[in-house]
Computed example of a mutant assay.
Amino acid sequence: MIEMVIEQRRRSLGGGLEVGRVLPFAKRRMVGPFIFFDHMGPIGLPAGIPAEVDVRPHPHIGLSTITYLFAGEVMHRDSVGSELPVRPREVNWMTAGRGITHSERFEKARAEGDFLDGIQAWVALPKEYEETDPAFSHHEGDDLPQWSEGGVRGQLIAGSAYGLTAGARTHSPLFYAHLDMEAGATAEIPTGHAERALYVASGEVELDGRRFGAGTMLVLGPDASGVRAAQRSTLMLLGGEPVGERFLYWNFVSSSTERLAQAAEDWKAGRMKLPDTDDGEYIPLPDTPMPSPPAMS
C-alpha cells in the first residue's frame, strides 16, 4: 500500500523563516505533476519582524504554484498585476508558463504579529502548456468545495475528487485536498489517478498497519484506499497523472535544460518584468550548477 516514506527536511529561507521540504526528494522527484512541496512553518512571527523574512521578487517558468494556508496571512504581488493576500482555507493559484515574477511578504505579521502554517506546492505544466501566458487566480468559498462526514472535514483545493471539482483551472488531471480528521475517524483516499500521496501536516495516522506522524509524506500504491487518524490530524492528499520528465533549477521547471539556461540568463540580465508595486529589490540568481542534459542513447 505504501511505496515510499518521505520525511520533511528543514530548510532555512533566511530571516528566521523555516520550511519543511518534502518534494523533490532524491529517490522520488514527483508525484503525478506535483514537483515541489514545502510545509511553511508552523512558526510564530512576532510583530516587527525584519524585512529579511519576506520572500523578495523572484521568477518562475513552466509550472503553477499553489499557496494554501492553515493559519496566517501572506501578501502576494506579481508581474501580471495581482496584489492580494492569501488567508486560511483560500488558494492563490499562479501559472508561470513562459515566465512570471512575484513576491510573498509578511506584512500582517510585521504590523501585529502572526502565526504561519501552510503549504506551497508546485505542479509542472504539460509540454504543450509550458510556454502559456502567465496568469493568476484567487479562490475561496464555492470554488473550494467542502464536505463533512464521520469525523472528517474536507476541502477540495484543486482538481477533481470525492465527486467534486474545484474552481482553479488545471492543465493536467490531478487532485489536491485538505482533510481535518477527528481521532479514530477514517477517510477515503481518492482513486483513479496513476500516482498519489498523503502528507501528514499535524497529528498521527495509521496506514498499512503502521503509524506515521507530522512531517511525513506517504507515496501510495494503487491499492491504498483509506487512512485512519490515530489522533486529531490534518492531512493533504494529492496526486494525478505524470507529465513526463522535468528538470528543476532554482525556481524554474522545464522539460528542457536549454530552456532552464535561457530562463536563468533572462533573469540575470534583467529581462523578466518585476511586479509593478514591488520592483525595488529582487532575489539574485544563485551560484549553483545547472542540471545536466540527458545522456544521448
Results as ranks from 00 to 15, higher is better:
1 M>N: 12
3 E>I: 06
8 Q>R: 15
9 R>H: 09
10 R>Q: 14
12 S>A: 14
19 V>F: 08
21 R>P: 02
22 V>A: 04
24 P>D: 09
25 F>R: 09
31 V>K: 13
32 G>D: 05
40 M>Q: 02
40 M>P: 00
41 G>I: 09
42 P>H: 12
42 P>A: 12
45 L>G: 00
46 P>S: 07
48 G>V: 08
50 P>I: 06
50 P>F: 13
55 V>R: 07
57 P>K: 07
67 T>L: 05
68 Y>T: 06
69 L>G: 09
74 V>D: 04
77 R>T: 15
78 D>F: 01
78 D>G: 01
81 G>A: 09
83 E>M: 12
84 L>A: 15
87 R>M: 06
92 N>W: 01
101 T>W: 06
105 R>A: 12
110 R>Q: 05
113 G>I: 14
119 I>V: 14
122 W>H: 03
122 W>Q: 04
124 A>S: 13
124 A>R: 01
126 P>V: 04
127 K>Y: 04
131 E>T: 13
138 H>M: 09
139 H>S: 09
141 G>S: 13
142 D>M: 09
143 D>T: 05
150 G>K: 11
150 G>D: 14
152 V>A: 03
156 L>M: 03
159 G>M: 02
159 G>P: 02
159 G>A: 06
169 R>W: 00
173 P>E: 05
174 L>Q: 04
174 L>D: 00
175 F>K: 04
176 Y>V: 02
178 H>Y: 14
179 L>M: 08
182 E>Q: 15
184 G>P: 06
185 A>K: 01
187 A>K: 00
187 A>P: 00
195 E>W: 11
195 E>A: 10
197 A>D: 01
197 A>H: 00
203 G>K: 00
204 E>K: 14
205 V>L: 03
208 D>N: 15
210 R>T: 05
216 T>W: 01
220 L>I: 08
222 P>D: 11
228 R>H: 10
230 A>S: 15
234 T>V: 15
237 L>D: 07
237 L>S: 02
243 V>E: 02
245 E>Q: 09
249 Y>H: 10
250 W>V: 06
251 N>Q: 13
266 D>V: 10
268 K>T: 02
273 K>D: 05
274 L>G: 05
281 E>F: 11
281 E>M: 09
289 P>Q: 13
295 A>L: 12
